[in-house]
């Protein structure tokens, strides 16, 4: 895999020279367990005007990290999926039900992860998978909400994601979701924090470059929840957003906040066309 290392004196320099040579993501292709074919590169959707090609974060990782994801046994993120499968069948709450009581097997969730976040007519707003899971728990099971970025929730989102692997991400950005999408787009391009960075500064202007020893990706979330080698556990989208915002030395938003819901919808839409990949393995 070829990597171009550029010595960048300051973050300001990064931003002032948008034409810097990009180090391309590698050429490897991803098939999981020998039978789930994953699209990791495709034409950028029309609404992502500044990119011509979109790539999954998988393409930016080292060969060894990529290998972790090619087999469900080797993928430590699948531990979370197995934990969630136990929860799926476990009765919880005053209604005496488990997820399985209404939804039967987790495979009935195929296709769901690919279209979230989504406009929910009943609620009159865009909701995320985690919000829907908690809604099911409180409304239909009489169970306690799970912590938005906690282990149980992230494991369950990983399970629901795993049965959609290989299906193209396809979140709706028009109709009632449009306003939320526009808000997410604005957040994506707004510089914040002491370091005055926007998501775009790194993930659109500088993907392919090295940030210290990390190969910068496009910040796609088709692979979420992701098992990060850095903290050896599954990480959810909002937990990652929170970390990224904190890294710009800004006051960060809360997981589950309207800002992060909007941002998640927008960022998900930048990946429309890539395959659902989660749970993935990243740095």
């Amino acid at each position: 895999m070829k990597k171009t290392t550029l010595a960048i004196g300051s973050v300001a320099a990064l931003v002032l020279m948008p034409g810097l040579a990009m180090s391309d993501p590698d050429e490897d292709s991803l098939t999981i367990n020998g039978d789930i074919s994953i699209v990791t590169e495709t034409d950028a959707p029309a609404h992502t005007e500044n990119l011509s090609t979109i790539y999954s974060g998988w393409r930016f990782r080292s060969d060894e990290t990529q290998a972790f994801q090619m087999d469900d046994f080797d993928n430590p993120g699948m531990i979370g999926v197995e934990n969630a499968m136990v929860n799926w069948d476990t009765i919880d709450g005053s209604a005496g039900k488990s997820c399985a009581s209404c939804h039967e097997g987790p495979e009935t969730m195929a296709g769901v992860r690919a279209v979230y976040p989504k406009w929910n007519d009943k609620k009159g707003k865009v909701t995320t998978l985690a919000m829907e899971i908690n809604d099911c728990r409180t409304t239909h099971m009489g169970a306690e909400k799970w912590k938005y970025t906690g282990g149980d929730m992230t494991d369950m989102v990983a399970l629901i994601s795993s049965v959609s692997r290989g299906m193209p991400v396809n979140v709706a950005i028009d109709g009632p979701a449009k306003e939320t999408w526009e808000k997410g787009k604005e957040l994506y391009y707004t510089r914040t924090g002491q370091l005055e960075l926007s998501c775009a500064n790194c993930h659109e202007d500088s993907y392919g470059l090295m940030i210290r020893a990390d190969h910068l990706s496009q910040g796609q979330i088709n692979g979420f929840p992701t098992y990060r080698l850095k903290n050896t556990k599954l990480n959810s989208v909002h937990a990652r957003f929170k970390g990224c915002v904190r890294d710009t030395r800004a006051q960060t938003y809360k997981p589950g906040s309207p800002e992060f819901i909007a941002l998640e919808l927008y960022v998900a839409s930048r990946g429309n066309g890539l395959s659902v990949e989660g749970p993935s393995v990243r740095n």
Binding site: R61, S62, T65, A67, A213, L229, N231, T232, N283
Partner: peptide
């Protein structure tokens, strides 16, 4: 072993 470990936590 990899020449460059992406993360020191988990080196195959």
């Amino acid at each position: 072993a990899p020449e460059i470990a992406e993360n020191g936590n988990t080196v195959p």
